[in-house]
Design a protein around this nucleic acid. Structure first.
Lengths: 348, 348
DNA sequence: ATGAAAGCGCTAACAG
DNA sequence: CTGTTAGCGCTTTCAT
């Protein structure tokens, strides 16, 4: 690192000198609670605006221990659910006066190393928004004393907090809906094995099938939450005899792939030959080409809660702890409509 | 801000005391170039690892003026091109040893204010990855002396640098392809008005049509780079008589919407009744349900260049400046195949 | 090769 | 209400 800050910005000292005041007083103008004469504050702020002065957040962070940085970990930006969640989360975090430092995990780069880099900025909070990444990350954060919140996912680690959709309950709603629609042979396509979302959605679906007196659904693991995985899984699942009459996919993107395989490759009609349901309610689910029945995740509420925890934690309050499960909402669409049903709201 | 850092992490002073050395020497162990006995460095690093010490990036940032923070501005995470680009950009930036601070603009929150917050962390570089956001943002950054790079877009501001796809050339390739396919009446659907991507793609397309001796294409503005906008625009464009034989949409997501409108609402066959082409090559373009001919953006190269500029700028080298245009690649798929064509590579 | 000391930009006691 | 002083965690002369 050869040289020092070249375009050295205007500093508090500069501003103070310009105003003929001490740095202390000048600095106080920028803190709402501080004791300072209103007139003085006004003078300072006006001059600051004119000179384009802004307090250096790094310096503030060092001293106060409050960096107002929130780290967000992402592993899978290709499942459209995550970009949608990221966008809304980031907006909310910004709204609350924090900044998001983004960390994208990839096969190429181990999370561990990137996470250490992130932690060296002393984020006040880490949000893990990813299907995987559970244990590896959480450990390092705890070590650094940084609170961690899982969004849409939870880890086995009991110290970690989580805000998630009620996956079991949601899956049960989907089961009820499909069964009420007349389906008797049900199927489930899972995404990435070993994730809580996957396991809970499978469980909830299976349990409700049994509770309604049906045999357990045919269960299949696609291997990942991707379009391609859904496509391939559907071919395996629907190719043979005794195919299900309704297929619940653990996420919308999986359902999109599966539906396309069913229609374009196997020539099945949806929903006449085969009903479909997904989970998440991503944008694509409402497109006329899919018009996919799904369980909408309560993203707004989930994010509200996450931000509430961030701000609380920043105020030094201890976190309530545990896992917060928020119920989702079933959105019935054409992909699971009964032949007789008139779907009132044709999209677009 | 009532209290001071509660879980106060281990600091360089602590580490030095533990080792019985001065902070100066201890600190030097973490700088590859510094003069320090190899044995001493080894001892320090070993102990640091054991105690979990990591230099505080904020403090380093203040002193050296190098924060190793790259700000990324995003306005539109709902066009799938941007999440894909963001993921790859972030990975590359991390790889280069920087951290991404993400800023998402939304109608609710003006960019201006959020940008000021971001700038207070003194990022070394700002990348604008967005259809809009041009002027507002660039100004504030220049003011702060932070170099700005537009990715996939450029502004009128001559001081800003940009790395973009050769939109005109790409659109011309698409025109050639569609014309070679036998189309004579061509149409163009644009996205968000006033963006450089939009304008250049329209121009390139139109120019090539004229150069090939065809009348100028029917041009339509969808208003935004979204599925819905594409859907609606297609209805307007294809409803009347004399509809085009081939439609070039300024982005894939627009094309997806337009194609669905054509097929599902108007009952047209693609490509028999109407050929389609898009721009970007997002994931969806290769799905069997769209199988969309498109112009693939040279994302890898674009990002390589961006990262190169970041690292150079961090080393204090002045930026080469201007707009770097990288050619894209035509990816012919079924959406524009001639009836006679045998599409060899059926997807999946 | 190492250490002492000054200082980055800022906040937080403490006087006055 | 304002200014002085100390110091956050670190880097960087400048001596030794």
């Amino acid at each position: 690192m050869p040289h020092r800050r070249p375009p050295t910005a205007i500093t508090l000292k500069d501003l103070a000198r310009d105003l003929g005041m001490s740095v202390a007083t000048t600095g106080r103008a920028f803190h709402p609670g501080a004791v300072i004469a209103p007139a003085t504050r006004a003078r300072v702020l006006e001059r600051a605006l004119a000179l384009g002065y802004r307090p250096n957040a790094l310096a503030q962070g060092i001293i106060t221990g409050h960096t107002r940085i929130v780290g967000v970990l992402l592993s899978d930006l290709l499942n459209p659910f995550y970009p949608e969640a990221l966008a809304r989360l980031t907006e909310a975090v910004q709204q609350a006066g924090f900044n998001v430092m983004l960390l994208v995990a990839s096969p190429a780069q181990p999370v561990e190393e990137a996470l250490r880099l992130l932690l060296s900025y002393h984020p006040e909070f880490i949000i893990i928004l990813a299907t995987s990444l559970a244990g590896e990350a959480a450990g390092a954060c705890q070590e650094a004393g940084t609170p961690v919140l899982f969004l849409n996912r939870h880890s086995a680690d009991p110290r970690a907090h989580a805000v998630i959709c009620d996956n079991r309950g949601g899956a049960a709603q989907v089961a009820d809906h499909l069964i009420d629609g007349g389906a008797r042979r049900l199927g489930f396509i899972g995404g990435q094995p070993g994730t809580s979302t996957n396991a809970e959605r499978a469980e909830g679906f299976r349990a409700r099938c049994l509770a309604r007196g049906l045999p357990p659904p045919l269960e299949l693991e696609a291997g990942a939450f991707t379009y391609q995985a859904g496509y391939d899984a559907a071919l395996r699942c629907l190719g043979g005899p005794g195919r299900p009459e309704a297929l619940f996919c653990a996420s919308d993107i999986l359902a999109a792939g599966a539906m396309d395989a069913a229609r374009l490759r196997l020539g099945l009609r949806v929903p006449e030959d085969l009903a479909f349901a997904g989970f998440d309610d991503i944008a694509l689910a409402s497109w006329p080409s899919y018009d996919l029945t799904t369980l909408r995740q309560p993203l707004r509420r989930m994010i509200e809660l996450a931000v509430e925890w961030i701000t609380r934690s920043a105020r030094g309050e201890p976190l309530p702890g545990g896992i917060e499960r928020i119920p989702g909402e079933l959105v019935p669409r054409r992909s699971s409509a009964r032949p007789a049903d008139t779907v009132l709201e044709t999209p677009f």
